[in-house]
Simulated scan of single mutants.
Amino acid sequence: MEWTLFLLLLLCPLMMIICMKGMGGHKHHSSHSSSNLDKKMSKLEIENETLKKEIDKLSSLIKKGS
């Protein structure tokens, strides 16, 4: 029973090292993904404005119909 507890305690830092090493391989994509995120964000902002205008038009149509 003591060995399993000891093995679990050793396994925890080992898994942390493996996970951190695995995440380190994705650092070179950060500059590309940042510009990609900026493009997506600006596209979403334009789409949001379009949808707001459409909602305003529909709201005014509903008010006129009431």
Rank of each mutant, 00 (worst) to 15 (best):
M20V: 15
W3H: 06
G24V: 02
S33V: 13
S33A: 05
S66I: 13
M16I: 15
L58N: 04
G25S: 10
G25F: 02
E2L: 06
H29W: 01
C12Q: 10
S35Q: 10
L9N: 06
I55V: 12
L61F: 07
P13C: 01
S42C: 04
I17W: 08
L51Y: 03
L44T: 04
N48Q: 08
L8Y: 01
E2K: 06
G65C: 08
S35N: 08
S34Q: 11
M16P: 00
K64T: 07
S31D: 15
K53Q: 12
S42N: 14
T50M: 12
S59Y: 05
I55F: 01
M23I: 12
M41G: 01
L58D: 02
M41P: 00
I62C: 04
L14Q: 03
L58T: 01
K40V: 14
S30N: 09
E47H: 01
L11S: 12
K52G: 00
L10E: 05
G65F: 09
I46H: 05
M16H: 01
E2F: 07
L58V: 03
L5V: 07
I17Q: 04
L8W: 02
K43E: 15
F6E: 14
L11K: 06
E47V: 03
S33W: 07
T4E: 15
H28S: 15
L5R: 13
K57V: 12
M41Y: 08
E54A: 06
N36P: 00
L10W: 05
D56Q: 15
K21S: 14
G25P: 01
S34I: 11
C12I: 15
M23S: 06
L8M: 09
H28R: 10
K63R: 06
T4Y: 07
E54R: 04
C12A: 15
S30C: 01
L11H: 08
G22K: 03
E45T: 03
D38Q: 11
W3A: 09
L61C: 05
I17Y: 03
H26G: 00
S31Q: 12
C19R: 08
